[in-house]
Write a protein that binds this DNA or RNA. Structure first.
Length: 212
DNA sequence: CGTCTTTGACCAGCGC
DNA sequence: GCGCTGGTCAAAGACG
């Protein structure tokens, strides 16, 4: 399953992922990060996260494998799971960072902005989840004719899972509808890139953007 | 102390 | 066979 999501959506992933690798990918200015489910030891679920070359605010996430355990509700038992270190402040990733190709083949240690990020287990679950709920609703409203501009679904299992997950936050929806805008005007994102009105532009960007 | 991230090394697949 | 590329391993250090 391949999915494109924003950093907020990435952060709202309620699974516990442990990073086990990062590699620079040829053709992409951003490295690819490899995560493995750390909730259960024998869980075979994995995901790969890389930034979209066309839009650095969009993360291309590839899921593989199946979780062999139910979705964790609390991760407090994990020692280091609460660390939410955003190494690169996402405020200015939209512009002004044009990665220079050349010297990131072997030495990926250069802390070029956006080279590393940690979407694992943020401490803002409730708010983010409620926000994502709005996102999903917006997708439902605006993406009726255009199937997939930001989110490409290959498997329906995760859709159902997300539905179940978000349904739990429905009751806290009031503050996200009224104050949801504050989230974006507070510096993280000036405007959500996936509003229905801008979907056409995104679709054009992904299809004919000429990224290759 | 347990789990995390980081990061270079290692391995397998592929094209020439 | 060789080199390139992508995926994984594992040691070392950091964090709560």
């Amino acid at each position: 399953m391949v999915r494109q999501m924003t950093q907020e959506e990435l952060s709202a992933d309620s699974w516990a992922w442990r990073k086990y690798g990062q590699k620079p990918i040829k053709g992409s200015p951003y490295p690819r990060n490899y995560y493995r489910c750390s909730t259960s030891k024998g869980c075979a679920a994995r995901k790969q996260v890389e930034r979209s070359p066309n839009d650095p605010e969009i993360f291309v996430v590839s899921y593989s494998g199946e979780h062999t355990h139910p979705r964790p509700t609390h991760r407090s038992s994990l020692a280091g799971s609460t660390r939410s270190k955003f190494a690169t402040p996402p405020a200015k990733i939209g512009n002004a960072i044009l990665p220079q190709k050349g010297s990131m083949t072997t030495s990926s240690s250069s802390p070029a902005a956006g080279s590393s990020f940690s979407p694992t287990t943020p401490s803002m679950e409730g708010e983010a989840a409620a926000l994502i709920d709005d996102v999903q609703m917006a997708e439902m409203d605006g993406a009726g004719d255009d199937d997939d501009e930001n989110i490409i679904m290959i498997s329906n299992d995760f859709i159902n899972d997300d539905d179940d997950m978000f349904r739990g936050f429905q009751d806290s929806d009031d503050h996200s509808s009224g104050g949801g805008g504050d989230f974006f005007s507070s510096g993280l994102l000036s405007s959500p890139p996936w509003t229905p009105t801008s979907s056409a532009g995104n679709a054009a960007k992904f299809n004919g953007g000429g990224g290759d």
